[in-house]
Design a protein around this nucleic acid. Structure first.
Lengths: 156, 156
DNA sequence: GCTGAAATCCTTTCGGC
DNA sequence: GCCGAAAGGATTTCAGC
């Protein structure tokens, strides 16, 4: 859970790059690719998890194949009186169905919600019921997402 | 790679939920949890990958532990003459170091870049050198990210 | 810290239902 | 489609360096 920059050697970086690309690679294959014994590789991976460099291993699911073909980013500005509760508010939004990400922002808007919706109606209902309806919300701005590209450059 | 909604039964949904939470779970354990034989489970997972419901398995790395402690969203508007090249432009940005996501948007801005930067200087350099410097870019707006919450509700 | 060996467990194929 | 069995591999621990 450490956020400070830890000491990583070339083997660690190679492990991270490989697991970022394919989290289900067998440990023995990973070990061969990075050039250490399987037992060593296992220890390295566990250490990387313990110190928080690896935050988890996740299957990446396609929202559009799961009944949520419409994605949007919704910028939200809170009323001044509600800013002290911003973290609770954001956490509550993050727990709602279809919410992929919540970003707390510096600047004019307080946060941004990344949503996968079932339909245009579903999107409107989400904004109206969960955001606009609240007296804590001063303003929202919804933008449809046409396409989502992942960063192509490994971080390590 | 199909984007149409496929037929998924309870076992498929259980598999998806489990692999979204932990992509490195052994197939035998997964099979036991969802209540089918390991061989059946393996077939299900492969089918889910083939039809594009599972898009991949990825280790989730902490940018702050990898020398990129500062995150930002950068809204970009292109000059009218450059809009025909928007996809190439966005793809080029997505390939730059530190770029986590690029969202192509409907609305006033053409896309949004989600970036992990090494420092404030690095962030400024990214915006100036890769965006503002281009004659294709009409305007950018950078917002720091204070905190990033993942959606807490499984999509399936 | 890393290794290699060993025991246990997992993966994957395939025949049968 | 799913299961179960079986062969071949993989995971994980641990003693030794």
């Amino acid at each position: 859970m450490n956020k400070l920059r830890p000491e990583l050697d070339d083997v660690d970086r190679h492990i991270l790059r490989t697991l970022a690309a394919d989290a289900r690679i067998p440990n023995s294959t990973l070990a061969a690719q990075v050039g250490v014994a399987p037992s060593t590789c296992l220890m390295r991976v566990r250490r990387l998890q313990e110190i928080g460099v690896i935050q988890g291993f996740h299957a990446d699911l396609a929202p559009s194949a799961l009944g949520r073909p419409l994605q949007a980013v919704i910028a939200v500005r809170l009323a001044a009186h509600a800013r002290t509760r911003i973290r609770q508010f954001g956490a509550a939004i993050a727990a709602l169905p279809g919410v992929l990400n919540v970003f707390f922002l510096a600047g004019a808007n307080d946060f941004q919600v990344h949503l996968a919706a079932e339909s245009a109606d579903d999107l409107r209902d989400f904004v109206v019921e969960n955001l606009s309806a609240s007296r804590d919300v001063a303003m929202t701005e919804t933008n449809l997402i046409f396409e989502h590209l992942r960063g192509g450059s490994p971080m390590v």
